[in-house]
Simulated scan of single mutants.
Amino acid sequence: MSGSWRAGLLAEGVSITVTAKAYRLLRAILMTATEDDKMLSRNPCWIKGADNERTPERPILTLAQVFELADRMADRRFKAMILLTTFASLRWGEVIALRRKDLDLTARTVRVREQLLELEGGEMRLCPPKSRAGKRTISIPSAIIPALADHLKRFVDEAEDSFVFLGKRGAFLRGGNFRREAKWAEALKEMGLTGLHFHDLRHTGNTLAAQSGASLADLKARMGHDSDRAALIYQHATRDADQKIADALSARVKAERKKARKKDH
């Protein structure tokens, strides 16, 4: 029970940290039900390490993999969704809440004004973004504009308030419906990818933005974060990668010089 519940949270894009906190709370509640109230014979929360908030290294797609994944979506409505989520660093709730009026393909921007959350009991509710910084306007790479224009033309009603990404029957998208209709697992298997969550598209987008040399302030604005912490993670990762490149170049220079000295002797 606890295993499938935890897996469901992670699959929906809930962070490791939040999932771990929720797991600890559930385990404490069930421990009371088991030891104090004798309502259960044993605590079903038994997953080793599930309460650990240490975030494992998440997969990062290459540019080629992002476009391949988009092309492999079983339903063509989701090609533009994959591209926009990645290259605008959007959260799941943000991308499924987008309206036609939020996309300006001439200015090449997408505006995040709200998010769509699935509440307990299954109700879908439009809410403000996670923080004040969550309301933002993000520039879109020109390379994905044709896919977005095609999507708007083929799948989105002309009304400015029309939602950009909906399920097959015109209802709000839910994580399970998306994975089923897009055949997400099948696409990942065909590409030889394992353990990729939808949230990792945002992670990939954040990484690409950091690799472009964006400043801390620019990264925070693009990601929709109030604090420096998350943006610094991507900057540090980029600096680490850059240092490895520099070390590799240094090793190559040393090898070439050593080879040259041997020739001289």
Rank of each mutant, 00 (worst) to 15 (best):
Ser2Leu: 14
Ser4Ile: 13
Gly13Phe: 10
Ser15Lys: 10
Lys21His: 12
Tyr23Met: 00
Arg24Ile: 03
Thr32Met: 10
Asp36Gln: 09
Asp36Thr: 08
Arg42Met: 14
Trp46His: 12
Lys48Ile: 14
Asn52Tyr: 10
Thr55Arg: 15
Ile60Asn: 02
Arg72Ala: 07
Asp75Leu: 04
Arg77Asn: 07
Phe78Glu: 05
Lys79Thr: 15
Phe87Thr: 04
Phe87Val: 05
Ala88Thr: 03
Lys101Asn: 07
Leu105Trp: 06
Thr106Tyr: 07
Arg108Val: 07
Thr109Asp: 04
Val112Asn: 00
Arg113Asn: 11
Arg113Asp: 08
Leu119Glu: 14
Leu119Met: 15
Glu120Ile: 08
Glu123Asp: 15
Lys130Glu: 02
Ser131Met: 00
Arg132Pro: 00
Thr137Arg: 02
Ser139Tyr: 08
Ser142Lys: 09
Ala143Arg: 11
Ala143Met: 13
Ala149Ile: 02
Lys153His: 14
Ser162Arg: 02
Val164Ile: 08
Val164Gly: 00
Lys168Asn: 10
Arg169Ala: 15
Ala171Leu: 09
Arg174His: 08
Arg174Glu: 12
Ala187Gly: 08
Met191Ser: 12
Gly195Phe: 12
Gly195Pro: 02
Gly195His: 11
Leu196Asp: 01
Phe198Asn: 00
His199Leu: 10
Asp200Thr: 11
Ala210Phe: 09
Gly213Asp: 09
Gly213Leu: 08
Arg222Glu: 03
His225Asp: 08
Ser227Tyr: 06
Ser227Pro: 00
Asp228Met: 04
Ala231His: 04
Ala241Ser: 13
Gln243Trp: 11
Ile245Leu: 14
Ala246Ile: 14
Asp247Cys: 10
Arg252Leu: 12
Lys254Cys: 06
Arg257Pro: 00
Lys258Ile: 09
Arg261His: 10
Lys262Glu: 15
Asp264Ala: 15
